[in-house]
Amino acid sequence: MIELNGVSKSYNGIRRAVDNLDLTIPDGEIFGFLGPNGAGKTTTIKMITGIIKPDAGQIRINGTDIAADPIKAKQRFGYVPDSPDLFLRLKGLEYVSFMADIYGVEQELRNSRIETLAKRFDMLDALGDTIQSYSHGMRQKIVIMGVLVHHPEVWILDEPLTGLDPKSSFTLKEMMREHADSGRTVFFSTHVLEVAEKLCDRVAIINKGKILFCGTFPQMQEHFQSHESLESLFLELTKHE
């Protein structure tokens, strides 16, 4: 579960990137975080993951306040950043193993998890090569593997489907569903509204740092008394902002 209470962040003391955000993502849910470019999605995700500090408000991951006990809170989640061009000089396997070390995954467990993940993402033949030699999609896959190797309770994924081939994209969506169905939390941001519509249990639409809507897709249709697609509703919602 992720809870945000009155979270605000501004840059240079002027522009409010995130404005008094309240959000609760309960266990057992895939939660989609939508919004136009520059709406505050990545800033929110960076605050949840402890990369930047909110100016005000409180963030809890499975009940642990990230400001009060950052190490414990950070152990609870796995985070996929929006750009996978990281640690390019490491080999794929070195990177995943490094992530396993950071989260203290035991030897036996990590071996079997790496094997399973590599099979599911079709990466078995690439693990011995440096990440620099990977395509964009492969880099995305290795970053996702690095996160999933420690079986985090809460998944926080920033644009995780960008660049993935259809099969890997399908696999990741399948894994997200499995994870939520096992009673844990998946929080992800996306621009692909079809994916959000099909995959998410609930969505929030953010623009200019404020939540415009939060709820299920049918609730949204009811709210706007419309039977249009999420895309039309999204465009309508963010048009006048």
């Binding site: 080999k91 396997l93 070195e94 995943v96 193993s97 396993a100 070390d101 995954v105 035991e106 030897q107 990590r110 071996n111 790496i114 078995l124 033949d125 690439a126 693990l127 011995g128 090569d129 440096t130 030699s133 990977y134």
Partner: peptide
Amino acid sequence: AGTRRKVEGHAFAKLAQM
């Protein structure tokens, strides 16, 4: 360029060592 060869056995154990 990568070699795209599967890492197995000893090489795997070495790279994935805890």
